[in-house]
Write a protein that binds this DNA or RNA. Structure first.
Lengths: 207, 207, 207, 207
DNA sequence: TATGAATGAGTGTTCATTCAT
DNA sequence: TATGAATGAACACTCATTCAT
């Protein structure tokens, strides 16, 4: 079916290729530490040639972050459609995050690590997606709390969960550590049991 | 009180001052993003003057990271002396980490975020301290497991805990979020309950 | 005329131009004393622009020295083909050296004066060419000795000859001093007569 | 005998020490390449301390060159008193030069190699001594020519001789090459025989 | 579509030198 | 007599970016 959306031009494909290399380079040396020359070397394209595809190094990072983030959010939405129970929905969130994280480890490091490298407009747009993603998780948490009649600080819970998950880029070793689904189960266990038991302020007790 | 230790020279004091500024600058702009000129401006000292106190930008980061890390490790050791029960010891670990983290948020971001900015000798030394710190926590976890007769992946548990805690630098707002002790209690609850219940592989069930 | 050799690119030509300026600058201020800014000023090209043509100041000196040396050696080989008699061959050596020296006085000063400015790889390569050149002269000297049945220290003789010739850059004034061929004849006379007469150890006598 | 001249103060002695180190440093790294920090390290004296003894790096070089040159000139004068015959006088000149050169190789390299490093006043003064020294040799040459009824370009002869001798710093190896007196004899032989024989313009002949 | 050539501004670092003590 | 502390200017070099082609 011909249409507007599926016309992926040669330009788009070439740009996507370059972005792959850029992810590699930013992953390896950090956004500030990476130079356009590094990217030129990595892609085999001339310095000037790169600029045909994007207007600045900053925009390059922006494109990476946006695409990465949008994809993870979109996949989440897809998966959430099939999950109804509050707990299950949180587990879906975790699995989605970790699956994407591990299949796109380098991009995710660039997303996580270069959190505040973008300025002004670019930064604001990514921050907005991030906020949306955060609130999705926050909502899941509140649903869960309501369903279970629990009482805890959702903000802390969500941010702790993000911490657990995002920190992965600092330690994950493919050949040592389990795959995404097992990791999601383990982290899900820790997190969900953690926020579950007791939990009522005032009646908090030793574990 | 006479003693060996109190010979803190003028040089040391001045260097310490500069390090404070450097923490601020690295916190604000990242290690790579920060220029020695930024530091010169921040300290009010001439570019050349700074080099009287340390031989390179890299060594500056090294000094910051080493001091920060050594202090946190040392305080932990002190506190661990008074804690005997496995659970309590983990809670001490968490509290120590978070207390230091929040009182030295900027330094801790520089420590966490610029994890792999140091090369060769400098990097190796910091990595060694980090490994020691990690293993201390791992040991605590194993003691806890043994005492409770639990079964879980200590590595994942410890690294998840670190993630929860270290991620703080990305979101903590002093006026919004609770203080260290409350945070330590909350995170401790989540984490300890999480790893506690059930836990035996095979008998795992819904939360 | 078609051929492999005539592909001298625009890049090569531009580089050659820059090298001319660099010779001038190094000649005037010495390698250490010359700054890239001096060269930038001399060429009228921006500081950064220069680096498009060579990767470092050291390599710049290397290129100058190598080209100068290779040319002088190559011309010598050419000329030596047509000379058979031992004495004549030495005179050819002297003439070749002085002719090139005087037509490329500045480059030759840079070659002579900055003898040990190059480090490691660069230095080694130039040193190798120099050694080869020295040995060519040493061989000429030994042939001469053998042919004439003379007895003298070839090493000292050769190095004395080099001294006579290379020192020129410190005193030669185009409008005062004779041209290369006359100078070559004079120095050749001094040198050849000098090593000729008497010369047998033991029978040495007053001049 | 009391007098003005022999009061060598502590200051003078200390300065002389420093000059020794400076010779070493300039010899090793060249005047431009040597830094005051290098000298500070070499002497064990503080950077600022050095400036008590001389007002600038340039003056340091000046002091070294002046002292070296004055000494060699003065010794020459002494020795020339006892030599009457023209040839002998030239041999004395050579021997004096080489003896001093080899006993003070490093200082002599600094003198020879850093010939034009000094600017303005400093440079002029050294240049004057040099000119005087040169003319002494030129006079010796002219006396010799007159006595022998020879005909050659004294300027070229003298400068060739200087070349032979001064070039030594680039090749002399104490354990390989002969000592000063032997070297002086060899170079004297080469040079004196060289300028002697034939020599009349027009009647010049093959050696 | 892609590049060779170029640039102004900036990088971390070192320079010779000074001055209060 | 000697130094610790400091500096302005310069160093070699790299940066992201541009523009004619």
């Amino acid at each position: 079916m011909p249409g507007v959306a599926h016309t992926e031009t040669r330009f788009d494909r070439r740009l996507a290729e370059i972005l792959e290399y850029a992810i590699e380079v930013f992953y390896e040396r950090g956004y500030e530490g990476a130079s356009m020359r590094d990217l030129s070397r990595a892609t085999g394209m001339s310095l000037a040639g790169l600029y045909y595809y994007f207007e600045s190094k900053e925009r390059l990072l922006y494109l990476i972050q946006k695409h990465t983030f949008k994809t993870i959010v979109q996949r989440l939405k897809e998966r959430l459609k099939d999950a109804n129970q509050p707990e299950q929905r949180i587990r879906v969130f975790i699995l989605n995050h970790l699956e994407y994280f591990l299949s796109n480890q380098k991009a995710m490091k660039v997303l996580s690590h270069e959190d505040d490298a973008l300025k002004n407009g670019f930064g604001a747009e990514i921050a907005a997606i991030k906020r949306e993603y955060y609130h999705t998780c926050l909502d899941l948490m509140d649903e869960f709390k309501a369903a279970k009649g629990l009482e805890f600080n959702s903000r802390i819970a969500v941010l702790s969960l993000f911490g657990m998950m995002n920190w992965i880029y600092t330690w994950y070793k493919p050949r040592v550590d389990a795959d995404a689904s097992e990791l999601a189960r383990d982290m899900g266990d820790i997190f969900l049991r953690g926020i579950c038991t007791g939990g009522q302020r005032g009646t908090r007790r030793k574990v």
